[in-house]
């Protein structure tokens, strides 16, 4: 028996919004520690990793490990039927071929349940090595979304360059060149408005706008986003899911041919 109840059901709605453009199907791996998902996009350019810890749920029961393969487009359609303040419960029997989503209004006067077929997905899992990144940049998630959206007009790629002076995002194309520089904030009223840079060595990498734009669908999840970079390794773009976990996107860089 698997059952997970989340009073703050809108967190799950937001997680799905942040995955559905990048992934069409994926497996949710459930254990007594929580729920995890790891999947590559169809082109194998990026990898998404989601963690939802058991202690972040209001009720969590998982008698035996199970992997629930789901069509994320369908899951997203179902979660769109939940109101933002609904309590969401996910339920499945052991070795079941379907999963049930229950949405309760806060006053319990409306209860809806939706059943969805599970899929048998033979998904490859990749081992992500522990890495000490050369540069870790934290910035407001909305600011990052705006930068990527603005620079996407210029070309297919964004160059992210981090030095001790700050971080620079650049794009070039037929209409011209765009550069956006962010310095570390000296002082801010609110922590979530801060730009902070921890840098061991300068690093410059080139990434596809298309993927960065899809990652920014997670902007609704968290006030801040963390970018971790090292020379010639994938970029990590991380959004926290409340205090119960995270969505991490790994994006392979564009490299000199």
């Amino acid at each position: 028996m698997f059952e997970a109840r989340l009073v703050q059901g809108n967190l799950l709605k937001k997680v799905l919004e942040s995955l559905k453009d990048l992934l069409t199907e994926a497996s949710w791996d459930c254990a007594d520690t929580g729920i995890q998902l790891q999947a590559m996009d169809n082109s194998h350019v990026s990898l998404v990793s989601v963690q939802l810890r058991a202690d972040g749920f209001d009720k969590f029961r998982c008698d035996r490990q199970l992997s629930m393969g789901m069509n994320l487009t369908s899951m997203s359609k179902i979660l769109r039927c939940a109101a933002n303040d609904d309590i969401i419960t996910i339920k499945a029997q052991d070795q079941a071929d379907n999963v049930t989503f229950v949405f309760e209004s806060p006053n319990q006067e409306k209860v809806a349940d939706y059943e969805m077929k599970l899929m048998n997905l033979d998904q490859e899992h990749l081992g992500i090595p522990e890495t000490d990144y050369a540069a870790v940049i934290k910035l407001p998630a909305a600011e990052f979304q705006r930068i990527i959206k603005d620079l996407s007009q210029f070309g297919e790629s964004v160059v992210i360059s981090c030095t001790k002076e700050g971080v620079k995002f650049s794009a070039a194309g037929d209409i011209g060149v765009g550069n956006i520089k962010l310095a570390q904030t000296a002082s801010v009223d609110k922590e979530e408005e801060a730009v902070t840079i921890e840098m061991q060595e300068p690093v410059t990498l080139t990434f596809a706008c298309r993927y960065l734009n899809m990652f920014t669908k997670a902007t609704c999840l968290a006030p801040q986003v963390t970018l971790s970079m090292s020379p010639e390794v994938p970029l990590v773009v991380e959004y926290k899911i409340g205090d119960m976990g995270h969505v991490r996107y790994y994006l392979a860089p564009k490299i000199e041919d």
């Binding site: 350019v45 899992h125 990749l126 596809a208 392979a252």
Partner: peptide
């Protein structure tokens, strides 16, 4: 000329 790398060039299959 830059070329898009695959994520599988960096992370090994488990």
């Amino acid at each position: 000329k830059v070329k898009q790398a695959s994520i599988m060039n960096f992370f090994q299959k488990k």
